[in-house]
Amino acid sequence: MNPVVAAEPQHNADQHNTKQQNPVPTAASAAGGPSEAGGQAAPVLCLCGAAVRVGGRTLWSGVDLEVQAGEFVAVLGPNGVGKSTLVKVLLGIMPAAEGEIRVLGRRPGEAGSRVGYLPQRRSFDPDLRIRGVDVVRMGLDGDRWGVPLPWSRNRREQQRRVDEVIELVGASGYAHRPIGQCSGGEQQRLLIAQALVRRPEVLLLDEPLDSLDLPNQSAVAALIGRICHQENVAVVMVAHDVNPILHHLDRVVYIAEGGAVCGPPSEVINSETLTRLYRTPVEVLSTQDGRLVVVGQPEAPAVHADRHDDGHGHGHGHGDRRGQSDRRGHGDRRAG
Protein backbone atom coordinates (compact mmCIF):
# COMPACT_ATOMS: atom_id res chain seq x y z
CA MET A 1 0.00 0.00 0.00
CA ASN A 2 2.61 2.43 1.00
CA PRO A 3 6.06 2.64 -0.55
CA VAL A 4 7.46 3.84 2.73
CA VAL A 5 6.37 0.75 4.57
CA ALA A 6 7.73 -1.43 1.84
CA ALA A 7 11.09 0.22 2.12
CA GLU A 8 11.26 -0.26 5.87
CA PRO A 9 14.88 -0.67 6.85
CA GLN A 10 16.14 -3.76 8.53
CA HIS A 11 17.46 -1.96 11.48
CA ASN A 12 17.23 -3.17 14.94
CA ALA A 13 18.30 -2.03 18.27
CA ASP A 14 20.39 -5.10 19.05
CA GLN A 15 22.72 -4.54 16.15
CA HIS A 16 23.36 -1.04 17.33
CA ASN A 17 23.91 -1.92 20.91
CA THR A 18 27.06 -3.70 19.97
CA LYS A 19 28.69 -0.58 18.66
CA GLN A 20 27.36 1.59 21.41
CA GLN A 21 30.02 3.18 23.51
CA ASN A 22 28.19 3.21 26.78
CA PRO A 23 26.36 -0.05 27.08
CA VAL A 24 25.49 0.48 30.71
CA PRO A 25 22.63 2.86 31.29
CA THR A 26 23.62 5.32 33.89
CA ALA A 27 21.41 7.38 36.09
CA ALA A 28 22.03 10.85 34.82
CA SER A 29 23.96 12.06 37.81
CA ALA A 30 26.54 9.33 37.40
CA ALA A 31 26.88 9.44 33.64
CA GLY A 32 30.28 9.96 32.05
CA GLY A 33 31.39 13.09 30.23
CA PRO A 34 31.96 13.61 26.53
CA SER A 35 35.39 12.00 26.71
CA GLU A 36 33.61 8.67 26.68
CA ALA A 37 33.24 8.79 22.92
CA GLY A 38 37.02 8.60 22.72
CA GLY A 39 38.24 7.50 19.32
CA GLN A 40 35.00 8.16 17.46
CA ALA A 41 34.29 11.12 15.22
CA ALA A 42 33.13 14.27 16.97
CA PRO A 43 29.56 13.83 18.16
CA VAL A 44 26.85 15.67 16.29
CA LEU A 45 25.06 16.62 19.47
CA CYS A 46 26.56 16.86 22.89
CA LEU A 47 24.91 17.74 26.18
CA CYS A 48 26.98 17.68 29.30
CA GLY A 49 25.38 18.23 32.67
CA ALA A 50 22.63 20.24 31.00
CA ALA A 51 19.78 21.66 33.04
CA VAL A 52 16.82 23.86 32.23
CA ARG A 53 14.83 26.15 34.44
CA VAL A 54 11.51 27.67 33.45
CA GLY A 55 10.12 30.33 35.76
CA GLY A 56 12.42 29.33 38.59
CA ARG A 57 11.44 25.66 38.40
CA THR A 58 14.04 23.17 37.29
CA LEU A 59 12.47 21.06 34.58
CA TRP A 60 15.37 18.65 34.29
CA SER A 61 19.01 18.65 35.17
CA GLY A 62 22.11 16.56 34.81
CA VAL A 63 21.34 15.40 31.28
CA ASP A 64 24.38 13.92 29.54
CA LEU A 65 23.92 12.85 25.97
CA GLU A 66 26.02 12.38 22.92
CA VAL A 67 24.54 11.65 19.55
CA GLN A 68 26.62 10.47 16.61
CA ALA A 69 25.79 10.94 12.95
CA GLY A 70 23.12 8.52 11.80
CA GLU A 71 21.87 7.75 15.29
CA PHE A 72 18.18 7.66 16.14
CA VAL A 73 17.48 8.91 19.64
CA ALA A 74 14.07 9.20 21.25
CA VAL A 75 13.26 11.55 24.11
CA LEU A 76 10.65 9.94 26.33
CA GLY A 77 8.93 10.88 29.54
CA PRO A 78 5.62 11.90 31.04
CA ASN A 79 3.69 14.95 29.88
CA GLY A 80 4.97 18.32 31.04
CA VAL A 81 8.38 17.03 31.99
CA GLY A 82 10.19 19.20 29.47
CA LYS A 83 10.74 16.97 26.45
CA SER A 84 9.91 19.70 23.94
CA THR A 85 12.04 22.06 25.97
CA LEU A 86 15.03 19.85 25.29
CA VAL A 87 14.47 20.32 21.56
CA LYS A 88 14.09 24.08 22.03
CA VAL A 89 17.34 24.19 23.95
CA LEU A 90 19.09 22.32 21.16
CA LEU A 91 17.63 24.82 18.68
CA GLY A 92 18.88 27.72 20.74
CA ILE A 93 15.37 29.12 21.22
CA MET A 94 15.65 28.58 24.98
CA PRO A 95 18.80 28.92 27.05
CA ALA A 96 20.12 26.13 29.20
CA ALA A 97 20.53 27.05 32.83
CA GLU A 98 23.55 24.86 33.36
CA GLY A 99 25.93 22.63 31.52
CA GLU A 100 27.57 22.63 28.15
CA ILE A 101 25.62 22.08 24.94
CA ARG A 102 27.14 21.68 21.51
CA VAL A 103 25.29 21.22 18.26
CA LEU A 104 27.62 20.23 15.42
CA GLY A 105 30.49 21.61 17.49
CA ARG A 106 28.87 25.03 17.88
CA ARG A 107 26.58 26.67 20.34
CA PRO A 108 22.87 25.94 19.88
CA GLY A 109 21.24 28.10 17.23
CA GLU A 110 24.48 28.74 15.39
CA ALA A 111 24.51 25.74 13.11
CA GLY A 112 21.89 27.28 10.83
CA SER A 113 20.62 25.12 8.01
CA ARG A 114 22.57 22.10 9.23
CA VAL A 115 19.79 21.54 11.76
CA GLY A 116 16.32 20.57 10.57
CA TYR A 117 13.35 21.12 12.87
CA LEU A 118 9.81 19.81 12.91
CA PRO A 119 7.78 21.54 15.63
CA GLN A 120 5.01 19.91 17.55
CA ARG A 121 1.98 19.15 15.46
CA ARG A 122 0.73 22.06 13.49
CA SER A 123 -2.10 21.49 11.15
CA PHE A 124 -2.82 23.67 8.21
CA ASP A 125 -6.12 25.40 7.75
CA PRO A 126 -8.22 23.22 5.41
CA ASP A 127 -8.72 26.11 3.04
CA LEU A 128 -5.14 27.31 3.01
CA ARG A 129 -4.45 27.54 -0.71
CA ILE A 130 -0.75 26.79 -0.75
CA ARG A 131 0.58 23.58 -2.28
CA GLY A 132 2.64 21.06 -0.35
CA VAL A 133 5.50 21.61 -2.75
CA ASP A 134 5.50 25.32 -1.87
CA VAL A 135 5.68 24.53 1.83
CA VAL A 136 8.66 22.25 1.19
CA ARG A 137 10.20 24.94 -0.94
CA MET A 138 9.92 27.44 1.90
CA GLY A 139 12.19 25.19 3.90
CA LEU A 140 14.83 25.69 1.22
CA ASP A 141 14.79 29.42 0.59
CA GLY A 142 11.81 30.83 2.47
CA ASP A 143 14.04 32.83 4.78
CA ARG A 144 15.79 34.71 1.97
CA TRP A 145 14.95 38.34 1.30
CA GLY A 146 14.12 39.68 -2.10
CA VAL A 147 12.55 38.16 -5.17
CA PRO A 148 14.04 35.00 -6.69
CA LEU A 149 15.15 35.49 -10.28
CA PRO A 150 13.10 33.17 -12.46
CA TRP A 151 15.87 32.51 -14.98
CA SER A 152 18.78 31.63 -12.69
CA ARG A 153 20.38 28.20 -12.93
CA ASN A 154 20.24 27.99 -9.17
CA ARG A 155 16.50 27.93 -9.35
CA ARG A 156 16.36 24.80 -11.47
CA GLU A 157 18.74 23.12 -9.10
CA GLN A 158 16.57 24.07 -6.15
CA GLN A 159 13.51 22.75 -7.92
CA ARG A 160 15.32 19.46 -8.43
CA ARG A 161 16.24 19.27 -4.75
CA VAL A 162 12.60 19.90 -3.75
CA ASP A 163 11.39 17.15 -6.09
CA GLU A 164 14.07 14.81 -4.82
CA VAL A 165 13.20 15.25 -1.17
CA ILE A 166 9.49 14.90 -1.88
CA GLU A 167 10.28 11.66 -3.64
CA LEU A 168 12.35 10.56 -0.65
CA VAL A 169 9.42 10.89 1.75
CA GLY A 170 7.04 9.35 -0.77
CA ALA A 171 4.87 12.43 -1.13
CA SER A 172 5.01 12.89 -4.91
CA GLY A 173 1.41 11.83 -5.33
CA TYR A 174 -0.07 14.73 -3.39
CA ALA A 175 2.65 17.39 -3.20
CA HIS A 176 0.86 19.51 -5.79
CA ARG A 177 -2.42 19.55 -3.91
CA PRO A 178 -3.20 22.42 -1.51
CA ILE A 179 -1.66 21.31 1.78
CA GLY A 180 -4.82 21.97 3.77
CA GLN A 181 -6.54 19.23 1.79
CA CYS A 182 -3.92 16.58 2.59
CA SER A 183 -4.49 14.12 5.41
CA GLY A 184 -2.57 14.31 8.66
CA GLY A 185 -0.08 11.65 7.58
CA GLU A 186 0.42 13.32 4.20
CA GLN A 187 0.99 16.69 5.83
CA GLN A 188 3.48 15.15 8.23
CA ARG A 189 5.47 13.61 5.37
CA LEU A 190 5.55 16.94 3.56
CA LEU A 191 6.73 18.66 6.72
CA ILE A 192 9.46 16.09 7.15
CA ALA A 193 10.48 16.83 3.57
CA GLN A 194 10.52 20.53 4.47
CA ALA A 195 12.80 19.84 7.42
CA LEU A 196 15.08 17.70 5.23
CA VAL A 197 15.30 19.86 2.14
CA ARG A 198 18.55 21.59 3.11
CA ARG A 199 20.26 18.29 3.87
CA PRO A 200 20.56 18.86 7.59
CA GLU A 201 22.94 16.73 9.64
CA VAL A 202 20.64 16.81 12.63
CA LEU A 203 16.89 16.45 12.59
CA LEU A 204 14.95 17.57 15.67
CA LEU A 205 11.41 16.23 15.68
CA ASP A 206 8.81 17.14 18.26
CA GLU A 207 6.13 14.45 18.52
CA PRO A 208 5.86 13.82 14.79
CA LEU A 209 3.61 10.81 15.31
CA ASP A 210 1.16 12.62 17.53
CA SER A 211 -2.42 12.50 16.26
CA LEU A 212 -1.65 10.18 13.36
CA ASP A 213 -3.58 6.95 13.05
CA LEU A 214 -1.75 3.70 13.74
CA PRO A 215 -0.84 2.67 10.17
CA ASN A 216 0.46 6.19 9.55
CA GLN A 217 2.39 6.15 12.83
CA SER A 218 4.35 3.08 11.84
CA ALA A 219 4.81 4.29 8.26
CA VAL A 220 6.13 7.70 9.31
CA ALA A 221 8.29 6.06 11.99
CA ALA A 222 9.76 3.76 9.36
CA LEU A 223 10.36 6.75 7.10
CA ILE A 224 12.23 8.61 9.85
CA GLY A 225 14.26 5.50 10.67
CA ARG A 226 15.17 5.09 7.01
CA ILE A 227 16.21 8.74 6.63
CA CYS A 228 18.25 8.49 9.79
CA HIS A 229 20.18 5.37 8.88
CA GLN A 230 20.41 5.68 5.10
CA GLU A 231 21.04 9.41 4.83
CA ASN A 232 23.18 9.36 7.95
CA VAL A 233 21.17 12.09 9.65
CA ALA A 234 21.19 12.18 13.43
CA VAL A 235 17.58 12.20 14.64
CA VAL A 236 16.40 13.38 18.04
CA MET A 237 12.71 12.72 18.34
CA VAL A 238 10.41 13.62 21.19
CA ALA A 239 7.91 10.83 21.50
CA HIS A 240 5.01 10.03 23.62
CA ASP A 241 4.76 6.35 22.76
CA VAL A 242 7.97 4.46 22.15
CA ASN A 243 6.39 1.45 20.48
CA PRO A 244 5.97 2.69 16.89
CA ILE A 245 9.66 3.65 16.80
CA LEU A 246 11.05 0.98 19.09
CA HIS A 247 12.76 -1.16 16.49
CA HIS A 248 14.29 1.81 14.67
CA LEU A 249 15.81 3.33 17.79
CA ASP A 250 19.44 3.35 18.78
CA ARG A 251 19.08 5.12 22.06
CA VAL A 252 16.54 6.72 24.33
CA VAL A 253 16.66 9.60 26.78
CA TYR A 254 14.09 9.05 29.47
CA ILE A 255 13.27 12.22 31.36
CA ALA A 256 11.42 12.11 34.64
CA GLU A 257 10.89 14.85 37.13
CA GLY A 258 14.35 16.26 37.82
CA GLY A 259 16.53 13.58 36.32
CA ALA A 260 17.13 11.67 33.13
CA VAL A 261 18.58 8.36 31.95
CA CYS A 262 20.20 7.69 28.60
CA GLY A 263 21.02 4.39 26.97
CA PRO A 264 19.85 1.73 24.56
CA PRO A 265 16.10 1.18 24.77
CA SER A 266 16.27 -2.29 26.25
CA GLU A 267 18.48 -1.06 29.06
CA VAL A 268 16.52 2.06 29.88
CA ILE A 269 12.94 0.97 29.47
CA ASN A 270 13.00 -1.78 32.06
CA SER A 271 11.56 -2.09 35.51
CA GLU A 272 14.85 -1.65 37.29
CA THR A 273 16.06 1.55 35.61
CA LEU A 274 12.70 3.27 35.61
CA THR A 275 12.13 2.35 39.25
CA ARG A 276 15.44 3.96 40.08
CA LEU A 277 14.61 7.02 37.98
CA TYR A 278 11.17 7.60 39.43
CA ARG A 279 12.13 6.46 42.92
CA THR A 280 8.91 4.50 43.08
CA PRO A 281 8.12 0.96 41.91
CA VAL A 282 7.55 0.89 38.16
CA GLU A 283 7.01 -2.20 36.08
CA VAL A 284 7.72 -2.58 32.39
CA LEU A 285 5.79 -5.34 30.71
CA SER A 286 6.70 -6.75 27.36
CA THR A 287 3.99 -8.10 25.11
CA GLN A 288 4.46 -11.12 22.90
CA ASP A 289 5.36 -9.06 19.87
CA GLY A 290 8.00 -7.08 21.74
CA ARG A 291 5.98 -4.00 22.59
CA LEU A 292 6.58 -2.31 25.90
CA VAL A 293 4.03 -1.17 28.43
CA VAL A 294 5.03 0.87 31.47
CA VAL A 295 2.85 0.35 34.50
CA GLY A 296 2.72 2.19 37.76
CA GLN A 297 4.75 5.26 37.05
CA PRO A 298 3.63 8.44 38.72
CA GLU A 299 1.55 10.82 36.58
CA ALA A 300 0.16 9.78 33.25
CA PRO A 301 1.93 6.76 31.80
CA ALA A 302 4.43 8.09 29.32
CA VAL A 303 4.88 5.09 27.15
CA HIS A 304 1.43 4.78 25.69
CA ALA A 305 0.10 7.73 27.52
CA ASP A 306 -2.90 8.98 25.67
CA ARG A 307 -5.12 5.92 25.38
CA HIS A 308 -7.76 5.54 27.99
CA ASP A 309 -7.73 1.90 28.99
CA ASP A 310 -5.38 0.70 31.67
CA GLY A 311 -1.90 -0.46 30.81
CA HIS A 312 -2.64 -4.16 30.77
CA GLY A 313 -5.65 -4.35 28.56
CA HIS A 314 -4.19 -2.11 26.12
CA GLY A 315 -0.94 -3.60 25.04
CA HIS A 316 -2.86 -6.53 23.70
CA GLY A 317 -5.46 -4.44 21.95
CA HIS A 318 -2.87 -2.57 19.95
CA GLY A 319 -0.76 -5.60 19.34
CA ASP A 320 -3.58 -7.17 17.44
CA ARG A 321 -4.35 -4.23 15.29
CA ARG A 322 -0.84 -3.24 14.44
CA GLY A 323 0.38 -6.78 14.22
CA GLN A 324 1.27 -6.77 10.54
CA SER A 325 4.04 -4.25 10.32
CA ASP A 326 5.48 -5.29 13.65
CA ARG A 327 5.52 -8.92 12.79
CA ARG A 328 7.34 -8.22 9.61
CA GLY A 329 9.87 -6.16 11.48
CA HIS A 330 10.49 -9.04 13.79
CA GLY A 331 10.77 -11.50 10.99
CA ASP A 332 13.52 -9.39 9.55
CA ARG A 333 15.21 -9.23 12.84
CA ARG A 334 15.34 -12.98 13.17
CA ALA A 335 16.50 -13.39 9.59
CA GLY A 336 19.25 -10.83 10.09
Partner: peptide, 8 residues
Protein backbone atom coordinates in the same frame (compact mmCIF):
# COMPACT_ATOMS: atom_id res chain seq x y z
CA UNK B 1 2.14 29.94 6.42
CA UNK B 2 4.49 28.33 8.93
CA UNK B 3 5.46 30.77 11.70
CA UNK B 4 7.14 28.25 14.00
CA UNK B 5 9.56 26.83 11.48
CA UNK B 6 10.18 30.29 10.05
CA UNK B 7 11.13 31.52 13.52
CA UNK B 8 13.43 28.55 14.01
Amino acid sequence: VDPQVAAA
